[in-house]
């Protein structure tokens, strides 16, 4: 099997950051507690980044800007509904199940709306998700009246965000599970292969008789579902859900996707790499915290990192074309 350069680069970066972190902090960076807390912060942004990746893979300038807004909306809507009808203290398991289901249903509906507008009305994805981003945020504001909705800290919901199983945070386990599942779906199902082929060459896909609008709608629906899951994790971790949570997540999710080597013009992206690149970002952020840098340095580092990865991607592309001539432009099946 051929080694994937993105995968190798990111793995090396993870190892390097861990080593530097351990060295700078004298070991505390590598303590189980710190590793746990980093792993707990990962899933919510990871889900959103995968959503962005899927939208990018669909090609034609696909992108999902509405992710975090959708996550907040589903958290708020489901939170209000669940709190009104179920008593968390009496029936915690039912409460959690209903809340999580509610989040995912609302998230998926939001995603389907995106998908329908993009595939049926043929509105540019950037524009559509820009509009729905405002719409979703607005709905969340209207539903909650601008206040935060208290979901409460009851097991088992609380443990999704804060508990651990065998020392590994449960939220992280769920995230890894989703990554594996999606990886399999993208590599082995007809939908996954068609999605990548559509992204690589939309015209060819039309002439091959692919059900383009169904593929697009499914893609954005999955992206919405992931946003709903992010909503569950956010609620579980923070006890409250609020409409303006994580405003910077939108850009961070795109940063993660680009760092993972997802091609913005579509047709290529691997879920594993997205997970790795989310880990890289998290490690870097924690490392800067450990070194006593302010959040502003973090912003600067993120911006630089994104630009560097764009440059690396650009020159690697040149190398690949030179090395293997035009036939290399066919999309590789992702895993």
């Amino acid at each position: 099997m051929r080694l994937d350069p993105n995968f190798v680069t990111l793995s090396v970066l993870v190892a390097l950051l861990l080593a530097v972190g351990g060295w700078v902090s004298g070991g505390t960076y590598l303590s189980p507690f710190n590793l746990q807390s980093m792993a707990m912060q990962l899933p919510e942004i990871g889900f959103l980044a995968i959503g962005v990746m899927l939208a990018m893979c669909a090609g034609n300038g696909g992108i999902d800007l509405s992710g975090i807004a959708n996550a907040n909306m589903s958290g708020v809507a489901s939170g209000i509904f669940t709190v009104a009808f179920f008593d968390a203290a009496q029936q915690p398991v039912v409460f959690t199940a209903v809340f999580a289901m509610g989040c995912m249903i609302v998230g998926t509906l939001g995603g389907v709306l995106n998908g329908l507008i993009i595939s049926k009305l043929k509105v540019t994805p950037i524009l559509c998700t820009l509009g729905t981003q405002m719409l979703f945020t607005g709905v969340a504001v209207v539903l909650s009246g601008g206040r935060s909705v208290a979901v409460g800290a009851h097991d088992p919901l609380y443990s999704i965000g804060n508990g651990t199983a065998l020392g590994v945070p449960i939220g992280f386990l769920i995230f890894v599970g989703v990554v594996i599942l999606l990886g399999v779906v993208l590599k082995f199902t007809r939908y996954g292969v068609r999605l990548m082929l559509t992204g690589a060459n939309p015209k060819a896909a039309v002439f091959s008789g692919f059900p383009i609008s169904r593929i697009l709608t499914t893609t954005y629906a999955i992206s919405g579902l992931l946003a709903g899951m992010a909503g569950v994790v956010i609620a579980a971790r923070n006890v409250n859900v609020k409409w303006d949570y994580g405003t910077s997540y939108l850009l961070v999710a795109i940063l993660i996707a680009v760092m993972a080597g997802v091609r913005p013009e579509g047709g290529y992206g691997r879920v594993v790499n997205v997970m790795l690149s989310a880990i890289v970002l998290q490690l870097l952020t924690s490392l800067l915290n450990f070194m006593g840098m302010s959040n502003f340095v973090r912003d600067l580092a993120w911006g630089l990192l994104l630009l560097c990865f764009l440059a690396v991607g650009r020159f690697a592309v040149i190398d690949r074309i030179v090395a293997t001539l035009p036939s290399a432009r066919s999309p590789r099946a992702p895993s």
Binding site: G61, I63, I126, L251, I254, L255, V258, P264, E265, S294, F296, V297, R298, D299, L300, A301, W302, G303, L304, L306, L307, L310, A311, G313, R314
Partner: peptide, 24 residues
Amino acid sequence: NSLRVPALIVTIGTQYFFRGLLLV
């Protein structure tokens, strides 16, 4: 121009970068 990626993604990067420069 030189990276040949969508301007949206480049400017997301520079947005962080510029504001980071200012604040740091």
